[in-house]
Write a protein that binds this DNA or RNA. Structure first.
Lengths: 338, 338
DNA sequence: TTGAAAGCGCTAACAG
DNA sequence: CTGTTAGCGCTTTCAA
């Protein structure tokens, strides 16, 4: 472990040149058979590992990509990571995880990692570019960046996402179909695009059904559990509380349901709830959560595939790639009470 | 973005040597004032970032550590990561995440990343060393590795962990204190040490209270949700089913409770359940889960602190560092039914 | 306090 | 097919 052998050590022991060893070890097909095997055997025997810094410096590549999210703590991203990772590994890339927590300094930091050679490309899932003068312009020229999940307006990056508005609308229509008329919405942090899209889907469904959205029926959240609790309370302090709530993500939906229970309201008997994300726990939750399911692994796979394309000089798709969602109808939605 | 300036570019523009620029940029205190500021300003203006490969090659360090876990998908690790990351960042290190999925090849792969210079040290949370001849021996000589959460026997690495046996025993004693006598256990993947420890805690509590453990009362699981469901069913096909279940982790406990509900059994009216981990959802779960809470962030912080110690040539603590746990009594435990 | 020069370990021309 | 040579961008002696 301590004596990391170098290419030169192998070369000397075998009486060949360092270049030959390098070639033998990289499957270049340029080394003849007696030597080839001897080198490989010796490398194995000496437990040789190429020094990545040296290699990266020489080749000007890191064979790594960066996946940047708002909050690693959100289990939602993990399935995406799996898709990204599987695809990356298959192409010889490793994946670094970046966590911004919405902190602008950290966002910049990860962009810097691209410039300093830590990674060759980036999958951005934060929904925004760091705020720094001339940043967008400086980056846009063709930096190997793919935006996933969220959308960055006015930026010419390839996007892979779902149709948030359509999925939200579909979820609300399900509620309407059950006879609900007083339907409230707990949103994400509007005006971020993803949150806006989901809210717009809610509005579109309501409007199409000729339903009014009373004051206070749209509560602005932040995707966190306890915020769901708080906003639920606010909703039930209204003069005319809703009989159904469309919540912008599952985590807040859990909070909403938790609070409903505290208020002595039965789900779905008195209040129906629909979430968004379909976390791995959503089905085991009680009652099992009705929610919008996203093809997470596919999103990861698609994003990484696009990034590999960019890295090998491929062209940028002009239009966002849209992946399909499914509404999983489970136990938190029921016909509206009379 | 495209023209990554190098130290030489700055040097030329300013008419100084590359060495001086390097020194100025590294706070070495070896550059005099007029030059110092000029260099720094110019670096900022040119948006300069040092190339990490070159620097790492030269300094023989990566300023990165590797945190290797069984399953990134488990939200449990994320809080630990936060502790690790905060401590690492403060010391100028970045954290890479490794995910083994119990795959021996991947385990080896991450050890290799240490040898090839990807990272300077490693926090291992997989509970085992890769199986390869002479591996333990080759690694032990003082590789900068800290083992957290789990324990690796016969390996002289620093350990930071909780007292699983004591925590488990405490949890079961809570059940016994509520009057339960027929207490079953859904374990982790015995014979892995952590699982064994928790099981032994269960056994110790039972024995100390003079309670028998009937055949079939110990079900071997794997920490996964659906396994909790399956094993719960098995438990209730026994001639004398339990009135309480101590489950080795929260995720399986969710599965157990989900299944109990399907079987028409009331929690905690007819059956009490205790979990282990205290996931962020455990409190919002219904009923709120009684469980053992681990100081996750502290574990991460402690592990990283130890690793930094090792990396700066510090000594290895001889004894495992044990962090305290708390039993959170919530809504899934109640007095035993008559 | 600054500059010149060497070299970290590797790969890629270019010759042979 | 193999060896020689140069150089990736940086830090660090050693001299001045």
């Amino acid at each position: 472990m301590n004596e990391r052998p170098k290419i030169k050590d192998i070369a000397e022991r075998l009486g060949v040149s360092a270049a030959t060893v390098s070639r033998a070890l990289s499957d270049s097909g340029l080394v003849a058979e007696p030597t080839l095997s001897r080198i490989r055997d010796m490398a194995r025997e000496m437990n040789y590992r190429p020094n990545v810094s040296a290699r990266n410096l020489r080749t000007q590549k890191a064979m790594a990509v960066l996946m940047v999210v708002r909050d690693v703590g959100n289990p939602f991203y993990l399935e995406i990571l799996k898709g990204v990772e599987a695809t990356a590994r298959a192409a010889g890339y490793s994946v670094l995880m970046g966590n911004t927590e919405n902190d602008s300094d950290r966002e910049i930091e990860y962009f810097d990692m691209l410039r300093d050679g830590h990674a060759d490309g980036m999958i951005l899932m934060t929904g925004k570019l760091p705020r720094r003068e001339g940043f967008v312009a400086s980056v846009e020229g063709g930096a190997p960046i793919v935006v996933a999940l969220e959308e960055i307006q006015d930026a010419a990056f390839p996007h892979v996402m779902i149709d948030n508005a359509a999925a939200a609308r579909n979820a609300v229509e399900h509620l309407i179909g059950l006879g609900h008329r007083r339907i409230a919405h707990v949103s994400g942090p509007v005006p971020e695009i993803m949150s806006v899209d989901r809210r717009d889907g809610y509005r579109a469904a309501m409007q199409a059904a000729g339903l009014a959205i009373p004051d206070g029926y749209e509560q602005r959240g932040d995707y966190l559990l306890h915020t769901g609790q708080r906003l639920c309370r606010a909703l039930f302090e209204l003069p005319e509380p809703p009989t159904a709530i469309f919540v912008a993500n599952d985590e807040m939906a859990f909070g909403v349901i938790h609070e409903l229970r505290k208020l002595g309201l039965d789900v779905p008997g008195q209040v129906s709830v629909v979430g968004f994300d379909d976390l791995f726990l959503s089905e085991a939750f009680y009652p099992p959560l009705t929610t919008v399911s996203q093809p997470r692994t596919d999103i990861g796979r698609a994003a990484m595939t696009m990034l590999l394309d960019l890295l090998s000089g491929g062209a940028t798709p002009r239009k966002p790639v849209m992946l399909p969602t499914t509404l999983k109808v489970r136990g938190t939605t029921a016909p509206a009470p009379k």
